[in-house]
């Protein structure tokens, strides 16, 4: 890339103004680990880059009234090292831990993962399971979009071209004394620097009896053109004995009804299905184990 203008706004308003003036000729860049790879492959057509790295309101993690506010420009390293995320959101901690390499985690951001919206994005299943909400801002104002409505197609989000992801809000699963935990698994050919062949995220809430499920969230990546929640299965698990979530039969039914697996260069649909059958129950079992419930 040559003759590129590079803007380094320090407020969201400045960033929006530059974007408004330049329109489609300007692209936002946060960590750059997706944008610059696209640019190198000449798949990015822009005359200007608007950096999101120096906007304090976009970065950082804070907890307010049982809601974790996650700045989209927070790096994966900062999420990985955050004690509240490790304690309250193990499902997200698990995912960040197995993303890229140390160098990638030092640059890549969670907001970048959301806005790239690849089906393989490892934070997306966890964010779906956590019922995260995206705050999208534009010169016209702000709107809140549930994560579940964000992924409208392959690498496509519900955000309009003039909208910027300004915040991620995650209600703490254990708020109000609820009993909840989650887990994430990713299948790769090598341990680091690999995209998921499939990934699985499960967050479970159990009733005070610790024997039945109060609420369930299941999501899978590279199981369809977008990250998907397995909603039918989530509903069927409500009220069921906790062990139900760990049954292979439940996973098999979920895959058949709610996934659209396909062959790709990297992996066959058959293998993806076989591994989902293993990893969905395994993630559910680990989530329960983290609540001190043995199955």
């Amino acid at each position: 890339m040559k003759n590129i203008e590079y803007f380094k706004p320090t407020t969201i308003d400045q960033a929006l103004r530059v974007k408004q003036e330049m329109g489609r000729e300007a692209c936002y860049i946060a960590g750059g680990t997706d944008v610059l790879v696209l640019a190198r492959e000449k798949k990015l057509d822009c005359r200007a880059l608007i950096s999101l790295r120096r906007i304090p309101e976009l970065a950082g993690i804070s907890l307010q009234d049982d809601v974790l506010h996650l700045g989209p420009a927070t790096t994966l390293t900062d999420i990985l090292e955050n004690g509240e995320v490790a304690r309250e959101l193990p499902i997200l901690h698990d995912a960040v831990q197995v993303m890229g390499s140390t160098q990638m985690r030092n640059m890549a951001t969670v907001g970048g993962n959301v806005m790239t919206a690849a089906s393989s994005g490892d934070t997306l299943g966890p964010l779906l399971c956590l019922d995260a909400v995206c705050r999208l801002v534009s010169p016209g104002g702000e709107r809140r979009v549930p994560m579940d409505e964000m992924f409208v197609g392959p690498r496509t989000t519900a955000a309009e071209p003039d909208e910027l992801l300004a915040g991620l809000e995650i209600p703490l699963p254990a708020a109000g004394g609820a009993i909840s935990s989650g887990a994430f698994f990713k299948l790769t050919r090598r341990a680091a620097m690999d995209l998921a062949l499939i990934n699985v995220a499960v967050q479970l809430w159990v009733n005070p009896d610790r024997a039945t499920i109060a609420k369930a969230r299941l999501a899978a990546g590279v199981a369809a053109p977008t990250p998907v929640r397995l909603k039918q299965t989530e509903e069927e698990l409500v009220g069921a004995p906790v062990a139900e979530a760990t049954k292979e039969q439940v996973a098999i039914r979920a895959i058949g009804r709610e996934c659209r697996l396909r062959d790709s260069d990297r992996c066959s649909a058959w293998y993806r299905e076989e591994m989902l059958r293993v990893l969905i129950p395994r993630a559910a079992a680990l989530a329960l184990e983290r609540m001190g419930i043995a199955v």
Partner: peptide, 21 residues
């Protein structure tokens, strides 16, 4: 960003300079 041969340290953190504006 996959091989790490261009790694440098910026403000204490290792990054791949091939993906760093």
């Amino acid at each position: 960003g996959e091989c790490g041969a261009c790694t440098v340290i910026i403000d204490g953190r290792a990054v791949t300079s091939c993906l760093y504006p």
